[in-house]
């Protein structure tokens, strides 16, 4: 198989799996942060936002150490699965989850904060329990933010380079993703293939982002109504 095609498949698998994991752990984390009043909130928020400012190689370096068989996380993984964690597909997925966490948590947290408690209280008084309220009220009213969070998480993972270079290496079919393949071509002065990969990554990202904004359009106007309503509610309560 064409090695670039294989790299594309690895990239898509990694990004899809990462996005699913991020939605599963990011949603409760964002909810918790949105409802949290304790002063530890800022510390958790800072930790979640770290990947936005930290050089990816710093995160990758510490993950590389943690994933090595000499250290506890790597040891535990090896005992549980029988395989080494560093330089594996699992390692780059875990790395991506940490690296793309703020892109999923932040839009969700903002949406949950804007939604507020008033509609949830109304739902509770009509007999809806917490899980019911999440699926019948929160999810439909913050659908646009979920789409944004998932798309940003996916796109950001596709574009990842530094973390994967540190903890994944360059194993074809396992950890060799598009951005690494591109780097290889440049190193080998194979600019023709580098151009091909770069152009296709650029186009795909462009199309993906345009699709996010397009998908958000109808919901966004609805969402605006909701926030205006919420703002009005807040105001009338203050009065």
């Amino acid at each position: 198989m064409n090695s670039d095609l294989q790299a594309l498949i690895t990239t898509l698998e990694m990004a899809a799996l990462t996005t699913i994991i991020l939605l599963i752990i990011g949603t409760p984390l964002a909810w918790y942060l949105a409802k949290m009043t304790s002063r530890f909130k800022v510390i958790i928020e800072a930790v979640v936002a770290l990947p936005l400012v930290l050089p990816p190689t710093v995160l990758g370096f510490y993950l590389l150490i943690a994933f090595s068989p000499e250290h506890l996380p790597g040891q535990l993984w090896q005992q549980a699965t029988g395989q080494q964690l560093a330089f594996s597909f699992s390692a780059i997925v875990i790395g991506s989850v940490l690296y793309s966490l703020p892109f999923v948590v932040q839009p969700l947290q903002k949406a949950f904060e804007q939604l507020g408690d008033s509609l949830l209280e109304a739902g509770a008084l009509l007999g809806a329990g917490p899980i019911d309220r999440f699926f019948s009220i929160v999810l439909p009213l913050t659908k646009a933010s979920f789409i944004t969070a998932a798309s940003l998480g996916f796109a950001h993972t596709v574009g990842e380079f530094g973390v994967i270079l540190m903890i994944g290496g360059n194993i074809p079919g396992e950890t060799r993703v598009l951005s690494i393949a591109l780097f290889d071509h440049v190193e080998a002065f194979d600019y023709a293939r580098a151009h091909l990969l770069s152009i296709s990554l650029l186009m795909t990202s462009m199309v993906l982002l345009a699709a996010i904004y397009w998908l958000n359009l109808p919901q966004r106007s609805k969402y605006k109504d909701l926030t205006v309503q919420a703002a009005r509610d807040e105001k009338s309560i203050d009065e």
Binding site: S118, L119, E121, A122, G123, L125, L126, G127, I137, P140, L141, K222, D225, L226, Q229, R232, D233, S236, I237
Partner: peptide
Amino acid sequence: RQIGLVFQNSRLFTH
């Protein structure tokens, strides 16, 4: 609790 509450702002579900 089986207690109903009508709020000052109607708090209807906009979706």
